[in-house]
Amino acid sequence: MAGYLTTHVLDTARGCPAKGIRIALYAVSGNTHRKIAETVTNEDGRTDAPILPAGDFATGTYELVFFCGDYLRATGLAGDDPLFLDEVPIRFGMSDPGAHYHVPLLLSPYGYSTYRGS
């Protein structure tokens, strides 16, 4: 079985999924970033398909960038410009070629966290 990568975003300030957040996935090699995918979260705060499906999966270092500013502004939680959180990058490694990697974002206007989910 080939590995794959999924993600989702939860709005911890409002206690609900974060709909409409644009997410970009980059392959990282040294100081080089190469965009390999882009998507938007759905009603459930998830992507409609894996952001890196099994057919495209490769081990290595990656970075997810969550473009949260527009979402935070739309919810009225953003605060003043410049926003404390606008783009949230998460860099991580995937070493198991047959694993499902899940990297969620738990978001509030002034903080975020992540973990390796299932």
Rank of each mutant, 00 (worst) to 15 (best):
M1Q: 03
G3D: 10
G3Y: 06
G3C: 06
Y4N: 12
Y4R: 09
L5K: 02
T7D: 06
H8Q: 08
V9T: 11
V9A: 13
T12W: 05
R14Q: 14
R14C: 10
G15P: 06
G15E: 11
C16H: 04
P17L: 12
P17D: 12
A18R: 04
A18L: 10
A18H: 06
K19E: 15
I21A: 09
I21G: 08
R22A: 14
R22T: 13
I23D: 07
I23V: 15
A24G: 08
A24D: 15
A24Q: 15
L25W: 04
L25I: 11
Y26D: 12
Y26C: 08
Y26M: 09
Y26S: 10
A27I: 01
V28Y: 04
V28Q: 04
V28P: 04
S29R: 11
S29F: 04
T32K: 13
R34V: 14
R34I: 13
I36D: 09
A37Y: 04
A37Q: 05
E38T: 13
E38W: 01
E38Q: 14
T41L: 11
T41P: 11
N42V: 08
E43N: 13
D44S: 13
G45P: 05
R46G: 10
R46V: 02
T47Q: 08
A49D: 14
P50M: 08
I51P: 04
L52R: 08
L52D: 11
L52A: 12
A54I: 00
G55S: 13
D56T: 00
D56R: 12
D56S: 15
D56C: 11
F57D: 04
F57Y: 14
F57T: 05
T59R: 10
T59I: 14
G60D: 12
G60N: 10
G60Q: 10
E63N: 04
E63Q: 15
L64S: 09
V65W: 03
F67S: 11
C68L: 03
D70H: 05
Y71N: 06
L72P: 03
L72N: 03
R73M: 05
R73L: 10
R73N: 05
R73V: 12
A74G: 09
T75Q: 15
T75R: 14
T75L: 07
G76T: 08
L77H: 01
A78S: 14
G79Q: 03
G79M: 05
D80F: 00
D80K: 12
D80I: 01
P82Q: 09
P82H: 07
P82G: 09
L83H: 07
L85C: 07
D86M: 03
P89Y: 05
P89I: 08
P89A: 09
F92Y: 13
G93M: 09
G93L: 01
D96M: 04
D96T: 06
P97K: 02
A99L: 07
A99Y: 05
H100D: 02
H102T: 03
H102R: 05
V103Y: 07
L106R: 04
L107W: 02
L107T: 01
L107A: 03
Y110C: 09
Y110H: 06
Y110L: 03
Y112D: 01
Y115L: 08
R116G: 12
S118F: 10
